[in-house]
Write a protein that binds this DNA or RNA. Sequence first.
DNA 1: GGCTAAGTCAAGCAACTGATTTAACATCGG
DNA 2: CCGATGTTAAATCAGTTGCTTGACTTAGCC
Lengths: 227, 227
Amino acid sequence: MVADVDRRPRAAQAEVTRRQILATAERLFAEEGLYAVSNRQISAAAGQGNNAAVGYHFGTKADLVRAIARRHTEAIEELRVACVSAVRGSREVRDWVDCLVRPVTSHLSSLDGPTWFARFAAQVMTDPAFRPVLAEESLASPSLREVLDQLSSCLPEVPPDVRADRADMVRHLILHVCAERERALAEGEVTPRAGWDGAATGLVDAIVGLWTAPHAGERSRPRPPGL
Amino acid sequence: MVADVDRRPRAAQAEVTRRQILATAERLFAEEGLYAVSNRQISAAAGQGNNAAVGYHFGTKADLVRAIARRHTEAIEELRVACVSAVRGSREVRDWVDCLVRPVTSHLSSLDGPTWFARFAAQVMTDPAFRPVLAEESLASPSLREVLDQLSSCLPEVPPDVRADRADMVRHLILHVCAERERALAEGEVTPRAGWDGAATGLVDAIVGLWTAPHAGERSRPRPPGL
DNA sequence: GGCTAAGTCAAGCAACTGATTTAACATCGG
DNA sequence: CCGATGTTAAATCAGTTGCTTGACTTAGCC
């Protein structure tokens, strides 16, 4: 169980197998659904004759999901840290919204070929059983906290509960728009935007508008009486 | 199980059973997850000694999901039609955004006790296998098309692809914000807004801001070079 | 009253699930 | 060189899945 001796051929082969299982599981989860794919199918599709390879290298299905997620969230976290340090000191809403959106889209576009992580993450965050696996550690990111704090300080006049409400909206927006775009790409549909960078621009435009929108009370117009 | 079943006519008793299965399945799906619940568990939890009751009254799991969804989407559709006819002729963005949000939140608040449909729908729309079941018929609603057309005509200067992009965002926003709020309510967490009506107001505010936000190109500020 | 058909119940089916166990095998430390 | 170790392979386990089957109960109609 020593960590720093994995350069040997033996440990290297195991690492190749682990990587293969991770990649295969991520693809199958995104395409077929989290629960629709069994550990056996993953092992087989990963080229492992062993039908228990997943259980051996990872543990339960939750552990596998966590391992897949961590690999991406770590990369995204690095990009976000770089993005934050690039705009630190700014008071522009758009700069900080960029720090929320660009790390995700940039990471997805950095993966060659089709991507599956956005669809995977959307499923994990929507499933009541798997949500806690990813939610805690993902929302605890210090750089993410800083971005949200900075975004809040850009709008001191907006009540805190409204800001919290909208922060949730932004989170859902980024996740599911990326997942939907990924799915559209995979199914060969036409996408509203060309490339992940264009999608990010559309997302940032919309989020800036959402974040800076006037909040309840600033509008005096009454709602229609029907509802 | 129930004492007064013997007095009911035959067909009515079957309808009671169907209703019971639908309600139980909706609750279990929302709480445990779509795939985490088997037809057997649903039958048992619905008080049916028959372990194949679900298969008998409905067909496959997809058929059950469709039946659950239809019951709610029909009610929401009615509310939306009423909402649309109330604001027809208006050129205000907020009026038409109301027609997207209020029917959903109004329907959820009309159900007494805790609700499960939003979480259920979020899972269905996120799962690659079940998404087509709900997506087609839900997006084909004529009143929904009219609202989106009216919303588009409110912003003629915005390119069509940007409008399509943002329409997708609005869809995701309404669905997953309602689902998240429902989940928070079920787990006893504090919710940013009090009541579904307040949540709808926050949602409408944000969506109006999102929809009317300036789009790419209207901002001349270059993005930070880091990404 | 007796018959048909619908609804319910209970048992059992093959197939599949995660998990465990055992064997084969290459690599490593000495 | 050999034994220890860790990875892969393969067989097997109990439990659960959807689905089918047949018996039982009862409403509706002749």
